[in-house]
Design a protein around this nucleic acid. Structure first.
Length: 494
RNA sequence: GCGGGUGUAGUGUAGGGGUUAUCACAUGGGCUUCCCAAGCCUAUGACCCGGGUUCAAAUCCCGGCACCCGCACCA
């Protein structure tokens, strides 16, 4: 009676995540709350590594970092358009209580209207007969579903909202930041932090959460040129332009041929690909897709999503949007957002690469999950993304091997705290436990170590090992140490 | 939000009105073991929550919550 079921990669990762401590549903002793997940010990380390890689990549672009509040007064999201546009106009059938977007009702009745406000929706259903798609009753009840959480009247000037994106914290500080940057353009400002969206139907663990981690950069460029820097990279990118077939080419070609609209857009699409690959996303399971016109957010007029393939579905993990927020804030606040250039005063345009950290964490785990021929699981994470860079084991807990192993562990962890010590169970069990959480190297102290100070170091993916002086590892570290590069393991026996 | 399915140790599961609630793996301790989840001994650990039916509910019914699938949604 048990149906034949192949476990999806998603299910394997969720099971592994709970069992080994990457992430699990929050608040579970009180029944849980949909859309919230806790990061466990290994998950925090993995997530922090992913954020670090992102941050380092943008520091190399001379980006400025900033950290602004999660709670934001109404005026900011009034100006950005979120208060008015970041909501769904919904309707409920009085008889069968079917609730869905008003537009879903009106479209199936043959109308093309789009609704921005409850008032426009109400007057439409007064003037036109719109029937329930389920039971045929006339629709009269229209209401709005806000996608921002908010705390009514908690601020000194009224309502406080939990930010749905970190970006506004950068825009409203534009003048201060640009002064710190000595008035130059182009300029990039980066922020990492939490965002909140009141998802109606949170799903798929880390993919759609109501509280989530984001990494956002606002790149301020000259509005006509939209130029950041020469695109030096020749990397092939899989590109899906709006309403046409996917092509593979590098960003410079794509910009020159007009497939990608600006230098800055092309530059940051390439940079995004490089960052995602470094984090452990698979090249052949990554593509960049341009938004259809009707898909664009209210603030954006061109947008490309980096999408990762997960169990056959393409999921957005980063969005690169062309937006124009400074003008809104200039208009609403009365503060000038213009910058003096040789061609006169201009209000910069914004190119925004924005990443969902949690979705990247899940994608990296799913893309890294491998199964050995013997059925055991290996997480093939990039060494500097893995929670632990190495594990140290005494081959056996006797003859002083454990004392020496602990000593070597101590020395290693002075320079690199991401090292794990384990002396329990058989050696094979310890290797397998580390494989499953992606630890790239296992260092074993054996009988010979006691004689000459060498240890064996086993590489995760090949399960092969070489012998090396412990001092070499202690002095030169684990990540990027050429004496333990992958080719050193190639010709070793299994 | 809608419809359907599922909820039993850390994980995966068996059972299905009265059981000391099955099994495996994992986990702790011990023995053994000089390199890949080995073996032996031993210990800990579970019926999602609330209400109802019943002499008796983990089991049946209702409600809630969570997860999964489909639809809708995804600024």
């Amino acid at each position: 009676m048990t149906a034949e079921k192949t476990e999806s990669t998603y299910e394997k990762v969720v099971e592994l995540a709970k069992r080994r401590g990457f992430f699990w549903p929050s608040f579970s002793i009180y029944g849980g709350e949909a859309g919230f997940y806790d990061y466990g010990p290994l998950g925090v380390m993995l997530k922090d590594n992913i954020i670090r890689i992102w941050k380092e990549a943008y520091l190399r672009e001379n980006a400025l970092l900033i950290d602004t509040p999660v709670l934001v007064p109404r005026a900011v999201f009034q100006a950005s358009g979120h208060v008015d546009k970041f909501l769904d106009i919904a309707a409920e059938c009085d008889k069968c209580h079917l609730r869905q977007k008003l537009e879903t009702f009106t479209k199936s009745a043959g109308y093309e209207e789009v609704f921005d406000t409850v008032e426009s929706g109400l007057s439409f259903v007064r003037d036109n007969v719109v029937k329930c798609t389920n039971c045929g009753t006339r629709i009269t009840r229209v209401y709005d579903v806000r996608q921002m959480f908010f705390l009514p009247d908690q601020g000194s000037s009224g309502d406080l909202f939990l930010r749905p994106e970190t970006a506004q914290g950068i825009f409203i500080n534009f003048k201060i930041l640009n002064n710190l940057f000595r008035g130059k353009l182009p300029m990039a400002v980066a922020q990492t932090g939490k965002g909140f969206r009141n998802e109606i139907a949170p799903r798929q663990s880390l993919i759609r959460m109501r509280e989530f981690n984001m990494c956002e950069v606002e790149v301020f460029v000259h509005p006509e040129k939209k130029f950041w820097a020469e695109i030096e990279y020749e990397d092939d990118i899989t590109i899906c332009p709006r309403s046409s077939q996917p092509v593979t080419l590098n960003a410079r070609e794509a910009v020159n041929s007009g497939i990608i609209s600006s230098n800055a857009m092309g530059y940051f699409i390439t940079l995004t690909q490089q960052i995602l690959l470094k984090m452990g996303i698979s090249r052949d399971r990554l593509r960049f897709r341009q938004h259809e016109k009707n898909e664009l957010a209210h603030y954006s007029f061109d947008s490309w999503d980096a999408e990762a393939e997960l169990d056959g579905n393409w999921i957005e993990i980063t969005g690169i949007a062309d937006r124009n927020d400074l003008r809104n804030h200039e208009k609403t606040s009365g503060e000038s957002m213009s910058v003096s250039t040789e061609e006169g005063d201009i209000v910069p345009s914004v190119i925004e690469p924005a990443s969902g950290v949690d979705r990247i964490v899940l994608s990296v785990l799913m893309h890294s999950l491998k199964t050995r021929e013997n059925g055991y699981t290996v997480l093939s994470l990039p060494p500097d993304v893995a929670p632990y860079h190495a594990a140290v084991f005494p081959l056996m807990k006797k003859n002083g091997m454990d004392q020496l192993a602990r000593k070597i562990f101590r020395s290693l962890s002075l320079n690199d705290p991401c090292v794990f010590y384990d002396e329990s169970g058989s050696i094979g069990k310890r290797y397998a436990r580390q494989d499953e959480v992606g630890t790239p190297y296992c260092i074993t102290i054996d009988g010979a170590s006691l004689e000459d100070g060498t240890v064996t170091i086993r590489e995760r993916d090949s399960a092969k090992q070489i012998r090396i002086a412990a001092e070499e590892l202690i002095n030169h570290g684990l990540i990027g140490n050429p004496s333990i590069s992958l080719d050193k393991f190639k010709n070793q026996p299994s």
